[in-house]
């Protein structure tokens, strides 16, 4: 039987430009910055893990994303890289979801897909960076999860051996399918796009599901279903008074050493 793998991916504000989204000190709201969407870096490791399983022992890979219609380009990129199906959960009602509501909606999307053996997610998104979505999807589906996965091998068709990172070490675990894993950067080296992949993926359909397709009500998704809200914003205030050390570069090094020595620091 072919392994059914679902990879959850997120379109995030391009990490290289995300720094342009700032808190406006005057209005205490976010400054609008036209930051383009990008493929969340750790989700590439999740997809790569799925592609490697597919190449080794065969699998059908469905990519699932929740986001604005612009996120379709990220799902398309996954198809170009070798995923078989793409599904985008997109509805105005999904907006403003925190990790809990996001996980709930994605879990409902997965149930809508039907059969699955393995779900792969990136460990964290580059914007929210909570690490909550993977394990919470698993919780809503009632399947086991292993997070922070650094190494993954198939023991047999129903069992994986995974290595999860820990402080100064790791945990080695045997995990029965169906299960969910979250990928770290150490798991693999994601492949680059190929021209033939892009051509092949052009013909593939990306399915879009909204609130009604998932059989959900407005109060079960988005901001309405999010337990957490932002209550205040502030720009940082705690500044130190900097003393610039002047002189030639050699004098600067000399003076810095003097200062640190006088303070008993070196």
């Amino acid at each position: 039987m072919t392994l059914q793998i679902i990879v959850c991916v997120k379109a995030v504000p391009d990490p290289a430009q995300a720094g342009r989204i700032r808190i406006d000190p005057a209005t205490r709201t976010l400054t609008r910055a036209d930051v383009p969407l990008a493929f969340n870096p750790l989700d590439r490791n999740a997809l790569e893990a799925a592609l490697q399983i597919k190449e080794k022992s065969g699998a059908r890979i469905t990519v699932l994303s929740m986001g604005p219609s612009g996120a379709e380009s990220i799902v398309r990129e996954c198809l170009s890289l070798g995923a078989d199906h793409g599904i985008l959960l997109s509805d105005r009602a999904f907006a403003g979801a925190d990790a809990y509501a996001t996980s709930f909606t994605l879990a409902r999307g997965i149930e809508n897909i039907g059969k699955y053996d393995l779900i792969l997610c990136g460990m964290a998104s580059s914007d929210g960076a909570t690490e909550w979505v993977g394990p919470q999807i698993a919780s809503f589906l009632g399947i086991p999860a292993a997070t922070q996965v650094e190494e993954l091998t198939q023991a047999d068709s129903q069992t994986l051996i995974v290595r999860s990172g820990m402080e100064n070490g790791y945990r080695l675990m045997e995990i029965k399918l169906p299960a969910l894993l979250t990928a770290t950067r150490k798991l693999n080296r994601p492949r680059a796009l190929s021209f033939s992949g892009i051509i092949k993926a052009r013909k593939k359909q990306i399915v879009q599901w909204g609130l009604q397709d998932l059989g959900l009500a407005e109060d079960q998704v988005g901001q309405a279903a999010s337990p957490t809200v932002v209550s205040a914003m502030t720009t940082r205030t705690a500044r130190r008074q900097v003393e610039f050390i002047e002189g030639s570069i050699e004098e600067k090094a000399e003076i810095l050493v003097q200062r640190l020595a006088q303070a008993g620091l070196i």
Partner: peptide
Amino acid sequence: CTGRELAPLVAARLATGLTAH
């Protein structure tokens, strides 16, 4: 490492919010 796995699992089961970092 384990706290960051355990916390979201507990939060999902209790249907409550969880804030990181």
